[in-house]
């Protein structure tokens, strides 16, 4: 059996030219990894510097002074356990809404061919074109006074989650993914006697693992870093997420850049760990579910 992940198979690799290509790819990827990781690492390491060192000339690559006492200070000022908990809950909801609501929409628009579907899709596409700043305040008004029912949704995650459910980007993404699924595959399954639903659960869902995984990851990291609407809506300390706190800290002229970076470090560590742990599962999902001929 030939092993291959892409163009280059084991057999190809034995040829000299392919070996050169393969190793140049590896070199390029190592450079890419350095560009992606080193700047962040440098900034994070710098967060234990003193403010003086931060601005010193010539600058230090590795910190000279280590101010670890700043960490307990930061933790005594802000309840990070609660911040983490809130943020996780918020992110989980965002992932769920992104996948289910946008996924269903994408599937329906792509494969169900409902009457009016084209109109819906055109509208969604056009909302992606119009700038969102036009409607910020009307959105805010809807949150304070929910249409028809009149609830006030301040300090609740629901409006934020529902905004995730209205992600034109993800709908379009899902739709174009489903569009790429060969129609023949679904037709064949139908001829074999599968109903719409079993086509969906048996064929479409397993095939969509890559896109679901991708959207889930992106939704999670998007939600983790989201600050604007959470900042507008979550005013109560008990529901605030970590980015809301950081945004507030950044606005605060009374806070040194080193303290801010320390808080930032702790805001990045959890998702980073999460990805290190989960990446095997998530990323394996990609390979395993690739359509094999």
């Amino acid at each position: 059996m030939k092993e291959r992940t892409g163009i280059i198979s084991n057999v190809n690799y034995k040829k000299g030219s392919y070996k050169v290509i393969y190793w140049s790819i590896i070199v390029l990827l190592v450079i890419m990894a350095a560009i992606c990781i080193l700047p962040v690492a440098w900034v994070l390491i710098s967060s234990v510097k003193s403010l003086d060192e931060f601005y010193s000339v010539p600058p230090t690559i590795l910190p000279r002074s280590f101010h670890f006492e700043a960490i307990p200070e930061l933790f005594s000022r802000y309840d990070f356990t609660k911040l983490y908990g809130n943020t996780l809950l918020y992110c989980a909801g965002c992932v769920l809404f992104n996948i289910t609501i946008n996924g269903l929409m994408g599937y329906s628009l792509s494969k169900m061919k409902v009457k009016g579907g084209v109109v819906v899709f055109t509208i969604i596409l056009s909302t992606y074109m119009l700038p969102t700043t036009v409607c910020m305040a009307p959105v805010y008004k809807n949150i304070i006074k929910f249409p028809i029912f009149g609830f006030n949704l301040m300090n609740s995650y629901w409006p934020l989650w529902m905004m995730c459910g209205a992600s034109a980007y993800n709908v379009i993404l899902f739709k174009s993914f489903f569009d790429d699924l060969p129609a023949g595959l679904l037709e064949a399954a139908k001829l074999d006697g599968c109903g719409d639903l079993s086509v969906f659960t048996r064929i479409v869902l397993p095939l969509s693992k890559p896109i679901i995984a991708t959207v889930a990851i992106m939704a999670f990291s998007g939600a983790w870093g989201d600050f604007f609407w959470p900042y507008m809506i979550l005013k109560d300390n008990n529901v605030q997420t970590i980015m809301v706190k950081i945004y507030a800290m950044q606005q605060d002229t009374q806070m040194g850049i080193n303290t801010l970076l320390l808080a930032i470090t702790f805001s990045i560590i959890p998702p980073a760990i999460l990805f290190v742990f989960f990446q095997k599962h998530i990323m394996n999902g990609f390979t395993m579910s690739g359509i094999k001929g």
Binding site: T127, M162, A168
Partner: peptide
Amino acid sequence: CFLIFVIQP
């Protein structure tokens, strides 16, 4: 979701 948070506003 679209209606409330995107289209009407």
